[in-house]
Amino acid sequence: MAIIGNPKYEARINHHLAKYETKRSAVMPLLYIAQEEYGWVNPEGIDEVAQILNLDPTQVKSIAGFYTMYSEKPKGKYWLHVCTDLPCALQGADEFYAWLKEELGIAEGGISEDGMFTVEHVMCLAACDKAPMLQCNFRYVENLDQDKMRALLAKWRQEAAQPVAAAAGE
């Protein structure tokens, strides 16, 4: 599918176009919509956002590249952002992150063999009192340890095996 002409997104796109003084201001919300449709910000999504906003695709791509929450490559179904910044690291986040990569058998930014997981470390997520923590598809998962994380990974694998696509995260 595309985002242009897709009834799923029409109301949201119009809402964003209406709330700003310039069309260009809607580039960030529209990039989120492209990422939702394609799973990542791919060239088709960039072109469509550019077309909607009367921008050059290069201008849109520069915005996508500047921010960490737009992925410019395919990723796993569950995108895990582990905070390893100072407050979390004081509570063991570096060790937790190293363990998680080993548990999933992937390096930073890679996709697990079953296509399920991509894991990356990120800077402070405003949850410093609940470390170790991560965001899974941008939902907060806090106060973690290895046992809790193993249980969550099993739960997500089970959800993904269901015929109906389940919502990510908690």
Binding site: K19, Y20, T22, R24, S25, A26, V27, M28, P29, L31, Y32, L53, S62, I63, F66, Y67, T68, M69, Y70, V122, M123, C124
Partner: peptide, 27 residues
Amino acid sequence: VYTHLGAGAYICGEESALLNSLEGYLG
């Protein structure tokens, strides 16, 4: 009153970078 979502950039907490980001330019 409107909300606007950033996309992961500390610098956008700096007020002039925030304004650029809100206008659809690099933060």
